[in-house]
């Protein structure tokens, strides 16, 4: 679930932190920069593990801060493919079942990866598994907040770093552009790191399904 990642970075320590231990000041700067952030193709950063190497610090003309090249190791949430994880159902939608682990939210189990046959209940906005027994089908609901076990099948990293303004498709014409811009603003925020899961195997799905 968690991995160690080796990284190198140049850390800037402002002069008012010079009275502190260099290690502590650097650890704090690194945590400030990386904690709870997704690094592209690496995963969700949790906290600093240790500093492995400190180069000499430099002070450049015109800036009182010191710059130090640091080799360090960071704890990162990055489950491997086919790993089994536990989470809670956040909510269900047409796209599938959305799962959260508390510190990480962007987990989706698409409809084709649910226990089959699966059905979406429009009225209650919930997915259910039409489990067949000898006495007929049982509807097993996947309610919000239930504990769920799933297998990681895929991961998606999206580069969400800011881009330049969209190509000038709509040259602003006076007195015309009032409604369209509003829509663009509402454009959905894309998750930088999404896990795709499956529960289409015996033992996967709500914990209560397999306890009895």
């Amino acid at each position: 679930m968690f991995v160690l990642v080796e990284m190198v970075d140049t850390v800037r320590i402002p002069p008012w932190n010079f009275q502190r231990q260099l290690n502590d000041a650097i650890a704090e700067e690194l945590n400030k920069k990386l904690a709870n952030k997704v690094v592209y193709n690496v995963g969700l950063c949790v906290c600093l593990y240790d500093i492995t190497k400190l180069d000499d610090s430099y002070i450049f003309p015109g800036d009182g801060a010191s710059h130090t090249k640091v080799n360090f190791r960071y704890v990162v949430f990055h489950p491997f493919l086919d790993e089994i994880l536990l989470g809670k159902i956040k909510y269900c939608s047409q796209e599938g079942v959305h799962v959260t682990m508390g510190f990480f939210d962007d987990i989706l189990i698409p409809p084709e990866s649910l226990q089959q046959p699966a059905k979406f209940d429009e009225a209650e906005q919930v997915w259910l598994w039409e489990y067949e027994t000898d006495e007929g089908a049982h509807d097993l609901y996947m309610d919000q907040g239930e504990d769920i076990r799933f297998r990681v099948t895929d991961e998606m990293f999206v580069d969400t770093s800011p881009t330049g303004p969209a190509a000038a498709e709509t040259p602003a014409q006076p007195g015309q552009s009032t409604a369209p811009p509003a829509e663009e603003v509402v454009e959905k925020k894309e998750a930088p790191y999404t896990l795709i899961g499956t529960i289409c195997d015996p033992g996967l799905g709500l914990l209560s399904w397999w306890n009895s």
């Binding site: 160690l4 990642v5 080796e6 906290c47």
Partner: peptide, 24 residues
């Protein structure tokens, strides 16, 4: 920033738990 090794080692949940508890 440069990533030298994106998977230097796997950590067990216990190790992360201990690290975070100590840090806290």
């Amino acid at each position: 920033m440069e990533v030298k090794n994106a998977n230097a080692a796997m950590l067990s949940n216990y190790e992360v738990f201990k690290l975070l508890t100590d840090l806290k």
